[in-house]
Structure formats: C-alpha cells, structure tokens
Write a protein that binds this DNA or RNA. Structure first.
Lengths: 338, 338
DNA sequence: AGCTTCAATGTAAACGTTTACATATCAACA
DNA sequence: TGTTGATATGTAAACGTTTACATTGAAGCT
C-alpha cells in the first residue's frame, strides 16, 4: 500500500551521479556545475523526492528546531511573545516545537526532557526557578537554554526580560505617592512562579520605603484567571479597613477585579483604584481603562530568538539582557477619595 | 568544551549489557527482566543519557510529532484551541510543531512543506481554502491532514468545527427578530479566509429570508484587530441611514467597535447594538458585555488531536465532525430605539 | 536423562543522509 | 611539456538507533 519513497540513491542513480553530488545540490548548490544541477533537479522532480528527515538530522547533527516551554498558550502575554519568537525563528530557517507546563514544575521538567529527546537544538524557558538537576541535564546534553520573561544576572541560565521586582516597585511607588495607604494585592501563585513572587516583593519594598506598615498590605494569592481575580476582589473589599487600591499581579486578574467591582456597585477608581501588569490588549478595552506596566512582549520574543540562534550556531555563551518597561497610567488609578 | 553526549553504546557498556537490551528497556520494558532494567536505568541516570532523535526517527520511521499551522497564535481563539490540542497530543506521547501563516496562503503553503520535511506524522490546518496542488502533495507524502475551525462535509480534507454560515445566520435572525432593519457588518478579510466569508454569507442569507434588502446591509472589510474594529465602527456610524446594529465577524473586532462607540458618545445598546463571534474571555469583560456566538474551542482542540492521532496510527480516513455552537445573549444587543 | 519451550539477551544489519578525503579534469603558466 | 592550482565529482565512513534473527539457559515434561 505504502510504497517506499525514493532516496538519495535513487536520485543519484537516475541522474547518473553520486549521492554526494545530489546532497550538494540540495545543501550547497554553488559547488555543483550548472549542467549537473539541472540533471539532478530533473531527477528529483521526476521521482518526487523529498529528503528523509531522520537521516538528515542524524548525519548533520542538528534539527534546526528550537523548543519552547511556556506555562500556557492561553495567556495572551505568552501567546504574543511566542508568536514573535516563532516569526523570528522562521526567518532564520528554524521551526518551533511547543510544549506547555500548566505552571507545574514536574510537567516542565518532563517537557524539557521530551523536547531534548526530540532533538531541539536550543530551548526557551520561562522563569528561573527549577530543579538544579535539570540545569545539569541541559549541560550534559549540550543544549543551550535561554530564560525569558524574567531578568536575573545572577541566575544559572542566561535570560532576557525585565526586572519584575523593580517594575512593580515603581508602580507601587506611584500609587503610594498618590496617597494610597491601604493596599490590596491579588497575586498569581507564588510558590512555583518566581515572576509573581518578585512582583509581590516589589510592592512590599515600595511600601517599606514609604514607611507603610506591612499590616496595611492585604495579599490574596489565587490561580490565574478572570474569575479568580473577581473572587479575590470580593474578598478584599470586605476587609477592614477596606483597601483604597487593589494592585494585581497581572492584567487578567485585574480585569476580573474590575468586573467584579463594577458588579458590586463600586465605582472604579472613585471607590477603589485597580492596577494590572503586562499591558495586554484587554487593558485598553475594559472600562475604565487599566493602569498597568507595559512589557515589550514582541521585542522580547524576537530578541530571545536571535539570542538563542546565536547560542546554538556559534556556541556563544548566553547574554543577560534587560528590557525596559514603562508604566501606563490610565483611568483605573486615581488618588483615594477624601 | 563541548563533549559529545552519551549514546546507547555508552549506556550499554556502563550497564554491562548489549545495546539491544538498552533499547528494549526504553521501548518495551516488559521484555526485560527487572534486575537488568534496574542496572540499565541506573546507567542512564548516571550518564544523563537521552536518545538521539534523528537516529531514533530513522530506525523507527516515525517522529511522533504533529504539526499545526494556524494564522496566528496571538488570536485568543486559536491560542485556546491549540492549547487543548497540545495537551491531548502530549497525553498520547506526541509533540506539537507549530507554524503560523499570518493569514497568507503562500506562507501557509511553505509551512506545510516545511513541517512535512521535518517529519510531521500528521497536520492540523485551519480552514478549507488552499491550492489543490497542496492537497495532492499531502496525498503523495502520505501525511494525514485535518482541518479545524471549519466544518464542510463536501471539502477534500476531513474537518472538525462548526458551521460558520449557519451559526452567524442564526444570530442574525435573532437580531432581525428584535426589529433591526439597518445592519452594519464588520468582517475580517474575506479573500483569504473562508470562515470570515461564510459568516458574512450567513448574515446575508438571514437578511434575504427576512425580506431585508441587501442595500440595508452595510459591509466593511478590515484586517484583524481591536483598533481596526474601532475604525470600522466609526465609518459605519456616519453612514446614512445609520445602522441600529453592528454585527462583527469576531469578538476582537466587536470589542474595538464597542470601545469606539463609547468614545464617540454612543450608548450601547441604546443607540447601537453590537455583536461578536467566538466568545473569547474578553467578551464578558467589556462593558456592556458582548452578545456573541459561543464556540467550544477546547473541545475542538481536544477532538482534533484525538482524530488526527487515529488517522496517523490506524491509517483511518478522517471523519467530518460538526460541533454545536450556541448564542450568548448579553447586554450589547437590544431592540432598536423607537 | 533427553527433549521441547520459552524467556532473556546478544549480534549485527539496516535506516538515508552528510562530509572529509581522494580523485579526476582542465586551464594557466613557465 | 610538465607543473600547479582550482574546480567538480566520487568514495566511503560515520551518525545512533531499532529489530530480525541467533544464542543461551532454565524450566517443564516424558
């Protein structure tokens, strides 16, 4: 039923040349004289030849494939960065292998092994936190890895991203300058997510600097989603004293918080201010528009691809790159009433 | 600096067995006695061994890799479905190769060839519209392909999805029943996107059935995005007579339309109703909440994965599956004023 | 004991490329 | 005419698995 596909040998035989010449026609045509090339190409056409991937990979020792493991594709911030990453890879002749970890470290570990077993020439990972054994594994496998969405010059792996702590600290400082003293905080789970943890610490540091007691900081940790953000806001609004601002670890939580606030009859920002982090599209669409931290996702994806390709091709050690973020002040943040 | 990774031979040597036994340990552990398996696994651990992909593929003649080509990962509707697709693949030991076409047919074609050259065992594609030559190519290469996000029993390739035409027709019928007679329509580009085209035709048919003249249908075609949706709404609102409802080809366009309507001082839905399509998360977050067509994205992704794996493993011909959609009536749609 | 069976393991031949090295050809030049 | 160098092509050895087949040894039978 399934007839064997033609091989290099078949092409060589039909064209009346050696396999080496056929291979060169495909990989470095400049080395082959015109007349030969024509013969070979005709044979390839006639036979409907397409090179065998496995054999090619084995002989050439690379797959031209880069793996990426992200928590989830559903989160817009990863989707956008990943899209840019993939576009840049494609420009350079690489293909993207994707896996998602659902924010679970043991799944991420399994996925790392799986992508390497599938011949990924390099790996894009999110965040720095992982079992040291994995880093050793990456080393023995000789697969370069780059961390994105985080910046940490002291970490084992090179990274490209922004300083989550400092960015959030800057935003919190602005919030405090406006006069807010009771701050609610909705964060994604911090135990397996170093970005989330950094952001919380950023707020804590800003509060400390401003001489605000940690007791005035009411923190709720929840899983990722619009609905969970909504629930968390409800809880916060019944705290005593009620926070005058709710800072959220990301835009999705913030959007959920805004929705629930509205549903509960609170005016945003008159009754309560709300801030986010990431500046995904949704931030400008909600009413009121969301004050948030803008992160250059596409730039990060593109640069990550470039850096990783260099690491793979030139065996270059990875560099640590910090990207600039900026605060987008929009309607959802205002000084507290009174 | 870069020492070669350990091979099957190294493992065999360290464990004191043959390469065949090591291979069996990996692929059919039942055939190997417990004591041997322990020795081998220890050797694998100690060496940090991971099988070479190319060699494995070449010897086994399969990659356990499925390719997907979607217009873009940035669009939430593809991201969510793709995430579910990937999760189901993983459950079955497959990995996902991703490429994006940016809605450009020639790029899609190139990506199809590229993914096949990389050994994809099967392919997930979006929409039915493509050069017949590509379908022939898929056939000669013996790579099964499945179309998602569309349903068409008469098409060459099997598909899983919903009836874009009928779904939109149903929504339009509801809109018309409410009393709307002047309908604005914002659609994504229809020349390279059969889903968009079907949706437009759905509205046209509903209008025809209700005896509404095509002149009362004002169609604007634009590229995908919140901002383009906003611009299109602005244009529509200056048409004479002004439409009492603006139906949008997808939620993203609709959300942009809502925003601009608000910015221009129109009340939605009192001054103008707005509808979307897809029911992505954003639909429940905008104010007013968006009336739209709910599509079971995750279900589609999961089922697509199952079907494709069957096609690959059992050489089964693909089936055509229609999924049910449902209309979500929310605040943004109301009868016209007066 | 001798024979058969079966499970566990070993041996070695593919699998289809790429590429270092060898060889052939030919033009240019002393 | 012989030498040199450049260019085009051929030869054959990897590359690291899987797997058909061969071998071994022990258990179960007569």
């Amino acid at each position: 039923m399934r007839q064997p596909s033609p091989t290099l040998h078949d092409v060589a035989r039909v064209a009346g040349v050696s396999t080496a010449t056929v291979s060169r026609c495909l990989n470095s045509p400049g080395q082959v004289i015109e007349s030969t090339r024509v013969k070979v190409n005709k044979a390839i056409q006639d036979l409907g030849y397409s090179p065998n991937f496995g054999a090619r990979v084995m002989a050439a020792r690379r797959t031209n494939t880069i793996g990426a493991i992200i928590p989830t594709m559903e989160n817009a911030i990863f989707a956008r960065g990943l899209q840019a990453f993939q576009e840049e890879l494609r420009k350079n002749g690489y293909t993207l292998l994707v896996a998602s970890s659902s924010y679970r470290p043991e799944v991420e570990e399994e996925q790392i092994r799986s992508l390497i077993a599938r011949g990924a020439d390099g790996l894009l990972l999110i965040g720095h936190e992982r079992d040291p054994a994995i880093n050793r594994f990456l080393e023995t496998q000789n697969v370069p890895a780059l961390v994105a969405w985080a910046y940490d010059a002291t970490a084992v792996l090179p990274s490209i991203g922004f300083d989550n702590l400092k960015s959030m600290c800057d935003l919190a400082t602005k919030v405090i300058e406006m006069g807010h003293r009771h701050i609610g905080l909705i964060t994604a789970e911090t135990n397996t997510n170093d970005r989330a943890r950094q952001r919380v610490r950023g707020i804590q540091e800003a509060a400390k600097t401003a001489g605000i007691s940690p007791d005035n900081l009411c923190i709720i940790e929840t899983s990722y989603g619009i609905e969970t953000g909504a629930k968390a806001l409800e809880t916060l609004m019944s705290a005593k004293p009620r926070p005058t601002v709710v800072m959220c670890g990301n835009d999705v939580l913030a959007v959920g918080a805004i929705r629930r606030a509205r549903e509960l009859g609170y005016d945003v920002p008159a009754d309560v201010s709300i801030t986010g982090f990431d500046d995904i599209e949704i931030a400008t669409v909600v009413a009121p528009q969301l004050t948030t931290v803008h992160v250059p996702h596409r730039e990060m994806g593109t640069n990550a691809a470039k850096a990783l390709i260099e690491m793979v091709e030139d065996n270059k050690p990875g560099e640590v790159t910090e990207l600039k973020v900026s605060i987008r002040l929009r309607e959802s943040l205002a000084p507290p009433a009174g």
